[in-house]
């Protein structure tokens, strides 16, 4: 009985990272709970399909880290929601708010690449 439990635990611990790594497979839309009631429709964002189509291999492009107001573009933060570090209403005036974080990151790249949505309704699409 103990042996089975041990094997099961071992198997689980081996699978866990795989589960984590797969988490983004299921991410089809961005709908952060931090905002509370959303003013706008959630944003369709098929994580892996987007990055494949946009040919982004480096996770760091989007998943940076940082603390105390300084961004760290060399360490990844995959799996940590943006809202963990970016508050909806930051107390520090210079800090990037959650909405600004999403908008700046998404739209800056689309502008630079001359591809991808720019206007509100292209991302916040109403369900017909």
């Amino acid at each position: 009985m103990k042996k089975i439990a041990l094997v099961a635990l071992l198997a689980l611990s081996l699978l866990l990272p795989a589960f984590l790594a797969m988490a983004q497979d299921d991410l089809k839309e961005i709908k952060s709970e931090a905002f509370g009631k959303l003013q706008r429709p959630a944003v369709a964002f098929d994580h892996n399909a987007h990055n494949e189509k946009a040919q982004i291999e480096d996770c760091l492009v989007c998943h940076h880290s940082g603390e105390n107001g300084v961004q760290d573009k060399t360490t990844g933060s995959e799996g940590t929601p943006c809202s963990e570090c970016h508050k909806v209403k930051p107390t520090d005036k210079k800090a990037t708010s959650l909405m600004r974080a999403y908008h700046k990151q998404c739209i800056a790249c689309h502008t630079e690449k001359k591809k991808g949505p720019l206007a509100c309704g292209e991302c916040h699409v109403r369900k017909k």
Binding site: Q39, S97, M99, R100, H103, K104, I107, C120
Partner: peptide
């Protein structure tokens, strides 16, 4: 208007209170 303030925020980092949509 929320959408206009969202643009001030996006282009200039300026924000101020908005009315509900």
């Amino acid at each position: 208007l929320l959408a206009h303030v969202a643009l001030w925020d996006q282009f200039f980092g300026i924000t101020y209170p908005v009315l509900d949509e």
